[in-house]
Amino acid sequence: MCLSVIGGTYVLLIVAMLLADATYMADQTFTAAARAEHPLRAVLTQNPITVALADAKIRHSIWLSLISCTLAAVISLVVAVPLGYLLARHEFRGKRLLDAVLDIPIVLPPLVVGLSLLILFQFPPFSWSARSIVYQVPAVVIAQFSVACAFAVRTMKSTFDHINPRCEHVAVTLGCSRAQAFGMVVLPEASRGMMTALTLAWARALGEFGPLLIFAGTTRMKTEVLSTSVFLEMNVGNIEAAVAVSLIMVAAAIAVLVITRVWGVRDAGL
């Protein structure tokens, strides 16, 4: 009973936060509708989300978010699959150190990640390409990747941990090379975990802000992504737009979750 109250309070907090956003949005919409000549049309055209979507800066931010998050998530997965496999299947000197290093992006304050990236690009060979990366669009992807990848690696390690190593052994005795066993047996077994890692990395990248602020800047129509938009709109006191962008992010996150769950369930043949 006590446990369910403690757990329930947290769930309630999550739901209440989302409800508060939605209520605030509805309140703004109805206020706008009450003032308008055509209240029904005003609900559709003057609610904060529609107003935000009409803004070219926000549309640019949405597109950049979609593209950068997808790129960061895909690169994270490409790195996380071999790294997760190495950690799950092999024993080697320095494994515990590697494991600890991979936790650094998770435990480090986000601003420090950004600052460290910025400092890194002062030194060769990184400094050679700093002009076309720092405070430019590639910096957005790099900042998102540097944090999101750590979560993808953790997910992939746990995925490979749960795959029976005997499956690979059998594949090898059936005539597969190690690479064939990995490609034909292990990767298909890991497909759900890969989908989860991709989604998690995407969601992390979408919510990334601290490293972006320092490493990519917050230039409108250039390096502005959704989380930056919320910050910029709040800075100029436009709370309606900030909440509207937040709700767009909530919708994107929910869409990704739903897609993953539906995919997962269909995949399991249920």
Partner: peptide, 8 residues
């Protein structure tokens, strides 16, 4: 193997 280790 003991558990069959079938490919799911």
């Amino acid at each position: 193997p003991q558990d069959g280790a079938l490919f799911s």
